[in-house]
Design a protein around this nucleic acid. Sequence first.
RNA 1: GUGGUUGUAGCUCAGCUGGUUAGAGCGCUGGAUUGUGGUUCCAGAGGUCGCCGGUUCGAACCCGGUCUUCCACCCCA
Length: 458
Amino acid sequence: MPQKPSIPKGTRDFSPTEVAKRNYIIQTIKKQFEVYGFQPIETPSFENYDTLMGKYGDEGDRLIFKILNSGDFISKVDDVTYSSKNSSSLTPKISDKALRYDLTVPFARYVVMHQNELDFPFKRYQVQPVWRADRPQKGRFREFYQCDADVVGAKSLLQEVEFVQLYDAVFEDLGLKGTTIKINNRKVLSGIAEVIGAKNLLVDFTVALDKLDKIGEEGVKQEMLAKGISETAIEKAAPLFQMTGSNHDQLEQLKSLLVQSEIGMAGVAELEEIVTHIEELGLQSAKLALDVTLARGLNYYTGAIYEVAAPEGVKMGSIGGGGRYDDLTGIFGLKDMSGVGISFGLDRIYLVLEELGLFPESLGRSLDVLCINFGKEESLAALQLVGKLRSAGLKAEVYPSSSKMQKQMKYANSRNVPYVILIGKQELDAGTFVVKNMENGEQQSYALNNPGEFIQQL
RNA sequence: GUGGUUGUAGCUCAGCUGGUUAGAGCGCUGGAUUGUGGUUCCAGAGGUCGCCGGUUCGAACCCGGUCUUCCACCCCA
């Protein structure tokens, strides 16, 4: 009985066309990363269990794919743990490796391990798959690519400014107009929590606030109440729900709200500097928008937070995100190493470009020229010609067998080949080859000993 | 992790209150057309109805389980 082929939930096969499109996005991103001075590194697909666990919160721990130990791992578990049937205490005893969950934590580990070889500030980029044991949905996979660029060892806000420009540059290159780069600052959120007297409920407060555009003002208030935030605190936070106007208008409103909070004012000052710089430098097609409700779950962010929204009308979660983390390497024993970085979600950008029809047409072209095969003698001449075309950098091939012309033409058609070359008996005798333009059907004849004439026409 | 949803030919989908040999369009293969594709005409191939079990004289259809898809939570790229 043959096994029915299948792949795990949330994973995908990629066809030649899909790979071409994905590579197009990756190359565009990598090119800008390098133009901005980042260097590539790669890290293993799986890390030590302890490297990853505890870095992403309880929710994150649940979504990490653990790798079962090799050998007779179960016999090494003590009876008490084994019979307790408690997954969280049993897992670390039967698994000491786990699949990479993102690229930031492995990068932090990398920086600490290689600190003596690195020149700081160190700017690295990394394009690799990550894995999450999530339940798949549209734009959510269990295996997907992240494209990260981070700087460690530089506290200057100029880095934050550059990352906004980098986002803009990539989306401009991809022809993706109208993206919104949302920006906020963790210090502002801390300040607000402080001012309203909910300092110890910062996380619950920000998570609830983050949902404003989704569940509305009433929904947010209810969730805050449910999380134990007092009504007077929520009352004080009320101005946040009505923040309107330009980035600067909103900053002014924040200032009056946060005047009592040192950390809050520091966050506002940072935001102001970034926003002002970007205004002076200008952006090509993206829009920078201050969004006080932007929270982002990852708890290692300490300063700026970014999130990129697809153009209006495209229903898709964020296509990129990032921020400043002052002490990411601290957990691995390297103190005072500030980092800031951004990430592009390749798979989601793909879906957005597909939905908007923004992939260049040439990506579907796997072949520039197909040579029709008329028989033994003719195909030899065809191979010689194809060799010259290949030297000129054209993707060219001879149809492998002298099937019916109709079949060969159909093949050319379905492979989207723009030019078909015919070398039959007549041409061979005359020392010529005929080029058929598949788009308009026009045919032109060239000398076999001078294919350069044809190549120049392209 | 919670709740829901989907699965029929390579693709997109029909298939009535359970009732003979499960259909269409597109695609594919062959022919009309022995040196010309994307239009047309003719013919043909192709299906364990996701999988396992149950109810029934009888199941694509009803029930249970399982896998998958998509959606809402949770969270997130």
